[in-house]
């Protein structure tokens, strides 16, 4: 999985002789491409959202259905992120430090949510837990309602974001040689103390990066949720599904207002991520 990790910055030698033209050309191509593909389209949505001024923006968001959707997206995302951070870190640890049969298979399975289309992921959960299915029926009988309810949102998000924390922590853990752990043991530290005081500080930036990425991805998730969530306004309608509804009902302003909120949160996450990574690189030098 391509986890968003900026590589280490090394000093770059100055351009030589005839180089500037070629370098300039490449840089221009790269920047124009990014501007046209990413910056301009995003600006269009931001401009649309702000076209009615801040008052208009507030008016568009100050609706029961809008606020409910945003709130639902934020808190299911937060719960899920906590679970994913804990389980993802544990999974990475087990994969790096232990040898056991089936490890290669386990390692391969982890990447599946990246490869499987999100809509198909949602479909799989419906098949497994839907009210007409074996497990779903049984759960219904016991009074646990997962599908078309908020737990389905959390499970769908856990499925689609599972690799993000694992693949952020795994390489750092691999780099962190076992010597440090062994040194801690030789100094009399217990396993828990060693994890708490030696491993965790070294892993923290990667864990936080993975967590931020998980949360940011969760805010935007659509394909897996649209099938499992039920999409009842104010109850099980998430922000991306809300945006779709507004587009389809012909209120682009309202759709862009919500988009603007989600984009802002994503921006903040990305900037935090970038800052974290740069700090980590700076420390390593």
């Amino acid at each position: 999985m391509a986890v968003v990790v900026a590589p280490q910055q090394v000093p770059i030698p100055k351009a030589r002789g005839e180089r500037p033209w070629g370098a300039w050309g490449l840089r221009t191509i790269a920047l124009v491409y990014l501007a046209l593909m990413i910056v301009v389209p995003l600006s269009a949505v931001v401009a649309e959202g702000l076209s009615g001024g801040l008052g208009g923006l507030w008016h568009d968001l100050n609706k029961f259905s809008a606020q409910g959707a945003l709130f639902l997206t934020l808190w299911t995302g937060a719960i899920m992120t906590v679970i994913n951070v804990v389980m993802g870190t544990l999974t990475a640890y087990v994969l790096v430090r232990y040898q056991f049969p089936g490890k290669a298979l386990l390692n391969a399975i982890i990447d599946m949510p990246v490869a499987i289309p999100t809509l198909v992921s949602g479909l799989m959960l419906v098949i497994l837990l839907g009210p007409q299915e074996v497990i779903g029926k049984w759960l219904d009988a016991v009074g646990i309602h997962i599908i078309f309810n908020w737990p389905a949102i959390v499970i769908a998000l856990l499925f689609t974001t599972f690799p993000l924390v694992v693949r952020a922590v795994q390489p750092v853990l691999e780099e962190l040689e076992i010597d440090q752990e062994e040194a801690a043991y030789s100094l009399g530290a217990t396993q828990w103390q060693t994890f708490r005081h030696v491993m965790l500080p070294a892993l923290r930036p990667a864990v936080i990066s993975g967590g931020l990425l998980t949360f940011a991805r969760a805010l935007g998730e659509f394909g897996s949720i649209v099938l499992v969530a039920g999409n009842l306004p104010g109850k099980t309608l998430t922000a991306p599904v809300y945006i779709l509804g507004e587009i389809e009902s012909g209120s682009p302003r309202s759709a862009s207002a919500m988009s603007l909120v989600l984009l802002t949160i994503s921006f903040v996450m990305i900037i935090l991520l970038d800052w974290l990574q740069r700090r980590r690189m700076a420390r390593r030098d």
């Binding site: 990014l34 990425l213 991306p240 599904v241």
Partner: peptide, 14 residues
């Protein structure tokens, strides 16, 4: 460098 990561997190609907 940060902008390149945006497609990872922008909602497909958006």
């Amino acid at each position: 460098n940060a902008i390149i990561n945006l497609p990872f997190v922008v909602s497909p609907v958006i």
